[in-house]
Computed example of a mutant assay.
Amino acid sequence: MPQDRYAPRPVTGRERLVEGMKWDVVADDFTLEPPEGQDVDPVTVRREYLEHPGAVSVLAMDDDERVLLLRQYRHPVRHELWELPAGLLDLDGEEPLLAAERELWEEVDLRAGRYDLLVDFLNSPGGSDEAQRVFLARDVQVVPETERFTRENEEAGIITAWVPLDEAVADVLAGRIQNPGAVIALLAADAARRAGWSTLRPVDSPWPMHPTYRPAPRGTDAPST
């Protein structure tokens, strides 16, 4: 059975090219060994990538199997995209589930009585180390107005819609929804439903793809400059 595995190559140098507000751009020099059985010398290569804190998303579903989508402006692509409630893991010590609960409250004024792990994915592994975890939230309730979060910037203009899961999946396949987290989560939810939700995992399942939970924490294999 195919399974991704943790297999780091020796990093001989690291340069921090950009320090950003939320994430940095770094360049690693690492040794690339030839595949087993090939008589080729090892080579050192350099790759630039986005060093990212990781993120969580929440697919909220009601008793009628409708899912909550939100529309938000994303400046890099100049589009308003239909997405899931989501956010960065940029608060020190905050566990992924707590971050998911916070994002559901902050972005769409909801709380959930039940959470399950729906799917994990790497957002763009050729150019970023961002790992994202998607939770399925059910038994959802609206937060009273007096307890709601005050949204700012792009989040202040969020529009929400409850959409039947089948309709949302059709929108993905037709190209009407293209945010990667939403695409993956909706297709995963459809597959999980067809399997009687037997594929759902505990919310505290291992997450070795995220740098914080890897055997070798990010930044220990070479000095940063």
Rank of each mutant, 00 (worst) to 15 (best):
E167Q: 11
R66W: 03
R9P: 07
R5F: 06
L104D: 07
P202L: 00
R194E: 14
W197G: 02
L69I: 03
H210A: 05
G93F: 05
D190F: 01
P223N: 04
G157V: 01
A131K: 01
E36I: 06
A137K: 06
W197V: 00
G157Q: 09
A168Y: 09
R14T: 13
L32C: 13
L88H: 14
S57R: 10
Q178W: 14
W197E: 01
Q72G: 04
D28G: 03
R14P: 11
R151T: 04
E94D: 08
L70R: 13
T150F: 06
M1W: 10
V18S: 12
Y213H: 15
L98H: 13
D116M: 00
G54T: 05
R9D: 15
A7R: 12
A170L: 13
L104F: 05
G181T: 07
S198Q: 09
A60S: 07
L50H: 02
V40I: 14
W207F: 14
I177F: 09
V169I: 10
R114E: 04
V58I: 00
T44H: 03
D190N: 00
L136R: 14
E154H: 09
W23Y: 11
V163T: 15
V108E: 08
N123L: 07
L88Q: 13
G54F: 08
E103N: 14
P96C: 07
E19S: 14
Y73T: 06
V40W: 15
R133G: 01
Q3T: 06
P125G: 02
S205Y: 00
V169R: 14
L91W: 13
P42F: 10
R46M: 12
A192V: 03
H52F: 07
